[in-house]
Amino acid sequence: MNKFRQKTVLVVEDEALLRFSIADTLEDAGYAVLEASSVLEAVGKLGQYEDIDVVLTDVDMPGALNGLDLARMVVECAPHIAVMVSSARRACDLADLPSAAHYLPKPFTPVGMLSSVGKILSLKAVEAEKSAASRRRA
C-alpha cells in the first residue's frame, strides 16, 4: 500500500440510505469511496479497481452470496486488502469470519467506524512493512 495515496474504501451495503451515509462519512474524512449494493457488484469493483485498501461489507446481502462469503474471497484472493464485516443481527456467524477480517457491530457511530477503518489500515501498513523487510533480508 502506498502510504501517500488517498486510501480507497469499497462500501458493500444493500440498504441505500445507510450506504450513502457511510460513503459520505468516509469521503468527509478524506477517503476515496466506491459503492456496491451486492456481493457480485463488489466483486466487479474489486476486478475493476486496483487501489482498493479496505472492503467494508454488511453480512446480510441480497443474492446467493453474503458479506462473509465476500470477506473470505477477499482475504484469500487479495490479502493486501483489509476487510471489515458489519452486522446488527448476525453475531452468531462470527465463527465464520476469516481470521484476517475485522468485525464492526451495528449500529456504529461515524467516529467509531472511522476509528476502526484507521486502525485496520494501520495494521495492514505494519504487515506490509514487515513483509517488505523480510523480503529484503532474504
Rank of each mutant, 00 (worst) to 15 (best):
S86Q: 11
R89N: 13
V83A: 06
S38A: 04
V126F: 10
Y31V: 01
S116G: 12
D53Y: 00
V75H: 03
V43E: 13
E41T: 01
M1W: 07
I52V: 15
P79S: 08
A132N: 13
D69E: 09
E50C: 00
D96F: 02
E129D: 15
V39A: 15
S99V: 10
F4C: 07
M1F: 14
A91M: 09
A23P: 05
L70F: 09
S134D: 12
V117D: 08
R90K: 03
F20W: 08
I81A: 03
D53T: 05
V43R: 12
A78E: 12
E50Q: 08
M113P: 13
E41G: 03
V111L: 13
H102W: 12
L65H: 06
S87A: 08
D24V: 01
G112L: 09
R137E: 15
L56V: 00
E76T: 06
A133Y: 11
A42P: 04
F20H: 11
A128C: 10
V117H: 10
A95Q: 08
F4N: 15
F4R: 13
V9N: 08
V55L: 04
V85T: 05
G63S: 05
I22K: 04
L10E: 14
R89T: 09
S37K: 05
L10T: 13
E50H: 02
M73H: 07
V117N: 11
S134W: 07
M113V: 07
L104D: 11
V33Y: 08
L65S: 02
L17R: 13
L17Q: 10
E15D: 14
E129H: 12
A78I: 00
V39Q: 03
L97M: 06
A128D: 15
K3D: 15
E76S: 12
L123G: 02
L26P: 11
A128K: 13
E13L: 07
A100I: 00
A133N: 10
S122I: 03
L94K: 12
P105C: 04
A82C: 07
M1K: 13
R19D: 06
D53P: 02
V39T: 08
L46C: 02
A101K: 01
L56G: 06
P98S: 12
S116W: 00
L17N: 10
S99L: 05
V55D: 01
K7F: 05
D69K: 06
T25V: 12
A64N: 04
G67D: 09
L18H: 09
G112S: 12
N66P: 04
F108R: 04
C77P: 00
R137Q: 14
R137I: 11
L56R: 07
G63M: 02
I22E: 11
V126H: 13
V75D: 07
V54N: 05
D96Y: 02
L40K: 06
V33S: 02
P79D: 08
A125P: 06
M61R: 03
G112I: 06
G118N: 15
L121K: 08
S134N: 11
P107H: 07
P62I: 03
D53A: 13
D69C: 01
D51G: 12
S87Q: 09
G63V: 03
L17I: 07
L40M: 09
R5H: 11
F20C: 02
A42M: 02
